[in-house]
Design a protein around this nucleic acid. Structure first.
Length: 148
DNA sequence: CGTTTGACTACGC
DNA sequence: CGCGTAGCCAAAC
């Protein structure tokens, strides 16, 4: 069974990945967890379920002033996952709206529009991370459109 | 110490 | 869809 190595280094890895999320896009806790290779190299079937809480923990202890876009990580339902009505929750929503992200009337973000497809393959290879789940076909990705 | 909690998620109804 | 539940584990009580 996979468990995170010492929490400090695990958090550092999470932050490294979160910093790659571009403005105006969002990732999920489970998506981040899926990118981080387990120490023993064996991926359990419910891999992202195991890591999602730890990713949440890492977000909870995000250092301020280091440019980590913590607001771009949300839960699998597309909602801000901080306690409803908390100062942090409204702050996160405001930050995302400032980046141009729109919320549905039920407070959800459409992954088809704003979901992050992960870093470039080069970056993944360089750091040894797994490619994450994609929310859109690359053909539909605005970033890939005029790549030719 | 035992219990509860938490920025989670997949799954079954 | 929404809601409840099981499973996870480090941290805080």
């Amino acid at each position: 069974m996979w468990k995170p190595p010492d929490p400090d280094s695990f958090n550092a890895v999470v932050w490294t990945i979160v910093k790659q999320i571009p403005e105006g896009q969002v990732a999920t806790y489970g998506q981040i967890a899926n990118m981080i290779p387990p120490p023993d190299g064996v991926i359990p079937p419910d891999y992202n379920r195991l890591g999602a809480r730890w990713v949440g923990n890492a977000m909870n202890s995000t250092p301020d002033g280091e440019g980590i876009p913590w607001q771009r990580v949300i839960n699998s339902k597309g909602e801000v996952s901080l306690p409803k009505g908390s100062p942090g929750a409204s702050k996160q929503r405001t930050l995302l709206e400032d980046e141009g992200i729109k919320f549905s009337d039920k407070g959800r973000i459409n992954f088809k529009v704003y979901g992050w497809n992960g870093p470039s393959k080069d970056w993944l290879d360089e750091h040894g991370f797994y490619p994450p789940k994609k929310f859109r076909d690359d053909a539909d990705d605005p970033k890939q459109m005029n790549l030719f």
